[in-house]
């Protein structure tokens, strides 16, 4: 049975029904919102983490010296592991999961979802090869067998360079995908969501890497390097969060200011600012305190990435339900 539909009226108490028909159709939504919920939020977070880790690993391989080896190793493992649940999350979200392969019938350059499927495949390929190469270097595949020998033959630097493009793509295309809809909150921020997701991907991946690298002395330089990236990405993230907030305006930006999605958005801003502040504080603190502050900062940055994706995804639901927002977006003459 179809679910019972509920009709939400926007009329203020005491106001006549006719008041609703002056500017909209009884306050009912103009457009249909998406059905995307938690699986998609987790896919966005993990895709960002995977893409960001792959970027850090590749950059460390290309320009880092011996000190950067731990970034390459942990980054490559994390990129592959974070990517693994992605296709599964996407498939369970389909109305007809058994038809997931219908996505492979076509390539459509104006459909970010179609491009995303192919981008995810490209990312999987480079992440898998990088994983093999790394596992061979680390001796996890054994010594003399065919797989290990083949894997060691993989051109490491070329692999790192080639993985950069799908890594950045995976981290950012989801923002473009949301922007190419009629949902006013996403459409108004179509130019900002991609860069915002990219910054958040890099900051969360750097945070995860700095946590995984631990506080051992051998990895100290590597940890410093990723924390420097984390701070830079956080600066970009904070700036873009403000741009989204101010650029949406009071009507279209309502879901970011009210309700659960609004709370999540405020949480995302607070986490990003808090993480940056703690990092800066750690730089001038005594060693033992600095270590604790950096740990908290990295946890905050990771949590912020999750809050950010939830607020944007669920804020989109609220936005689609709001006829005022749709009309505000579509009234502007183009």
């Amino acid at each position: 049975m179809p679910e019972l539909r509920t009709w939400r009226h926007r009329r203020a108490p005491g106001e006549p029904v006719s008041a609703e028909t002056r500017e909209s159709y009884y306050g009912l939504p103009v457009i249909h919102g998406p059905h995307w919920r938690w699986p998609i939020v987790f896919y966005f977070v993990l895709g960002g983490l995977a893409g960001g880790s792959a970027v850090l690993a590749a950059a460390a391989r290309l320009v880092g010296g011996d000190w950067a080896r731990p970034i390459v190793r942990v980054g490559r493992y994390l990129a592959f592991l974070a990517m693994l649940p992605g296709p599964l999350l996407l498939i369970v979200d389909l109305g007809r999961p058994e038809r997931f392969h219908h996505m492979l019938r076509v390539v459509k350059f104006r459909s970010p979802m179609s491009l995303g499927v192919w981008g995810l495949i490209g990312f999987t390929a480079t992440a898998f090869l990088s994983l093999l190469r790394q596992a061979a270097t680390d001796g996890l595949l054994g010594r003399a067998n065919v797989v290990a020998r083949l894997a060691r033959r993989l051109p490491d630097r070329i692999l790192a360079g080639a993985s950069l493009v799908p890594a950045f793509f995976l981290a950012g295309y989801t923002g473009v995908l949301l922007g190419a809809t009629a949902v006013p909150l996403w459409a108004r921020n179509a130019l900002r969501l991609g860069p915002l997701f990219l910054c958040s991907a890099l900051s969360s991946a750097a945070a995860a890497l700095s946590l995984l690298l631990g506080s051992r002395a051998e990895t100290a330089r590597a940890r410093h390097a990723v924390e420097r990236v984390e701070r830079l990405a956080l600066v970009g993230e904070i700036a873009l969060l403000e741009a989204v907030r101010l650029g949406s305006g009071p009507v279209i930006g309502r879901p970011l200011a009210e309700g659960l999605a609004g709370g999540a958005f405020a949480g995302a801003r607070a986490s990003a600012m808090g993480a940056l502040a703690l990092h800066l504080l750690a730089a001038v603190s005594p060693r033992w305190l600095g270590r604790a502050l950096r740990l908290v900062a990295s946890l905050l940055a990771l949590g912020g990435a999750f809050l950010l994706r939830s607020s944007i995804v669920f804020g989109g639901h609220r936005s689609a339900e709001d006829p005022d927002a749709t009309f505000e977006f579509t009234r502007a003459s183009r």
Partner: peptide
């Protein structure tokens, strides 16, 4: 063909 991805909806 449709697999219910839901992108056409929004």
């Amino acid at each position: 063909i449709c697999n219910g991805c839901g992108y056409c909806v929004p």
